[in-house]
């Protein structure tokens, strides 16, 4: 049986148990239950490994992207954002969660509002680092271009700011993301770090998306 199929056999209740454990929110009296699950179930082991990989990956991204705020982020527990239904922050609160608005951090995240897996929660941390989140309650997030650009304007250093009109704008900001349709997982966008550099777009799968990916070929 492939790794993907193995993971698909994990019951939802067991998946939620693993998520609680990963978030550090598991009641002490259920710890033995998780340990037994991980000892006996190959599916649980595979899913647990995915969760750890995703967590590790995202922590690295958040730390690297937020170098000036690295010390602050390093002390932040990923579980802080676990279990929350993430919503779009009102504009007047957009920069409040961090003491000093980052000026050199252009990290934008779109996160699926429902059915967030572990990866989605971890992405929340990264998004919170720049105090910008967009999420929708429905299973599909569709951010119209005008809507996105209005919101992004509050975040310094983003590549999603409204198009400039002057000459040379293309050199300064060659890539605009106009729309996103997220069926699962999430997306983070890093503007180029230097002129002529690439815009980096991270695509994250939640657990269900990983299971539905059909293997890794």
């Amino acid at each position: 049986m492939s790794d993907t199929r193995t993971k698909m056999t994990l019951p939802d209740a067991d998946f939620e148990l693993l998520m609680l454990h990963a978030d550090g929110e598991l009641p002490a009296d259920r710890l033995a239950q998780v340990q037994q699950l991980l000892a006996e179930s190959r599916a649980a082991q595979a899913v647990w490994q995915d969760m750890q990989l995703g967590r590790e990956l995202l922590r690295g991204i958040a730390l690297e992207a937020a170098a000036p705020a690295q010390a602050k982020l390093a002390r932040t527990d990923l579980s802080l954002v676990a279990g929350q239904i993430m919503r779009k922050l009102p504009d007047d609160q957009a920069l409040h969660p961090v003491a000093e608005p980052p000026t050199d951090l252009g990290l934008i995240a779109w996160i699926q509002g429902l059915g967030l897996g572990k990866v989605g929660f971890a992405m929340g941390l990264a998004a919170a680092a720049v105090a910008f989140m967009v999420a929708r309650a429905g299973p599909v997030v569709d951010a119209p271009a005008a809507d996105v650009q209005t919101e992004i304007a509050a975040v310094p250093g983003t590549n999603l700011a409204p198009p400039c009109q002057g000459d040379g704008c293309a050199d300064e900001n060659p890539v605009f993301i106009e729309e996103m349709d997220i069926e699962s997982g999430g997306v983070m966008v890093h503007p180029p770090r230097e002129q002529g550099g690439s815009t980096i777009i991270w695509h994250f799968q939640d657990n269900s998306a990983t299971q539905g990916a059909g293997g890794e070929g």
Binding site: D181, A209, G212
Partner: peptide, 8 residues
């Protein structure tokens, strides 16, 4: 199987 983006 994941997402789609429109880029300019």
């Amino acid at each position: 199987g994941m997402n789609a983006t429109v880029r300019a």
